[in-house]
């Protein structure tokens, strides 16, 4: 589904990703862990098409298509979804109108007839219950004045609405209380099918108890330096990144 080969990315003259390789197949869950500032969000941004980087080289193939040549919105319409580490506040745009606009465009792109107002509302309410979102939150402007946890919940609500093929969750667990973490993780699990894939970026093993990964990757110094099963996360939690530094043969 997603093939990344020898990806180099730099911003303001500084190289962040230095030859990253990653392969994700349908039905899989990949966890990416790594120290702060190592380039995890950068990877998510590059996959989704953020154009703030001065140099991007390498290859990103998604469903057989070259992602690098695809517009941001087309990547989204092709089923790529990013749950933002820092969801953006959009004053004056209600979540309802925002989702309505997004779904209409996605449907048009896919050659489907957009939902009627009534159908949309029904669907919207279903998904709201799915992430146990309060009615009040849905009527407000996108993320405006939301607490950290509410913002993350809203990301998963949008994910449920858009039902992506490839979801990238960038630290969706940070800021969530224990109950919210369970709701969010359950939501993500319920959305899993053999056809879609999930990349979970996290610092904590805790989330991976709920969303059990097939692979755990350690991103360090701009590359994936170690890949293992879910037990790697436990080991990391136990031993820290120093341990990786000592054991992985990396040049920084």
């Amino acid at each position: 589904m997603l093939e990344i080969k020898d990806l180099h990315v730099s911003i303001q003259g500084k190289e962040i990703l230095k030859g990253l390789n990653l392969s994700v197949k349908p039905g899989e869950v990949h966890a990416i862990m790594g120290p702060n500032g190592t380039g995890k969000s950068t990877l998510a941004n590059v996959i989704t098409g953020r154009d703030i980087y001065d140099n991007i080289s390498g290859e990103i193939i998604y469903k057989g298509k070259n992602l690098m040549e695809m517009a941001i919105e087309d990547r989204a319409r092709e089923g790529i979804f990013l749950s933002f580490q820092y969801p953006v506040e959009i004053p004056g745009v209600s979540i309802t109108n925002f989702m309505r606009a997004a779904m209409d465009e996605i449907y048009l792109y896919r050659g489907k007839k957009p939902m009627s107002g009534g159908e949309f509302l029904k669907y919207f309410n279903e998904k709201k219950q799915f992430v146990e979102m309060t009615a009040n939150l849905a009527n407000r402007s996108v993320n405006e004045g939301f607490s950290g946890g509410e913002k993350k919940k809203n990301e998963i609500f949008q994910m449920a609405m858009l039902n992506p093929d490839l979801a990238i969750l960038d630290e969706t667990d940070s800021g969530l209380d224990i109950d919210a973490l369970r709701i969010v993780a359950n939501g993500v699990n319920k959305l899993r099918t053999p056809e879609n894939a999930t990349i979970v970026i996290t610092h904590y093993q805790r989330l991976l108890d709920y969303i059990v990964p097939d692979f755990v990757h350690v991103l360090y110094g701009g590359k994936i330096v170690k890949t293992g099963g879910k037990e790697l996360a436990l080991e990391l939690e136990d031993k820290g990144y120093e341990w990786i530094k000592d054991h992985a043969d990396i040049q920084l």
Binding site: G49, E73, F81, L82, V88, V93, L162
Partner: peptide, 25 residues
């Protein structure tokens, strides 16, 4: 707001409409 534009486009909204929504709001 560039961040808001990216956020909206990441949800599938084209740039023109994303700008429109921001201006409208």
């Amino acid at each position: 707001d560039e961040d808001a534009l990216f956020y909206m486009m990441q949800r599938g909204i084209c740039e023109r409409n994303a700008r429109m929504l921001l201006m409208f709001s």
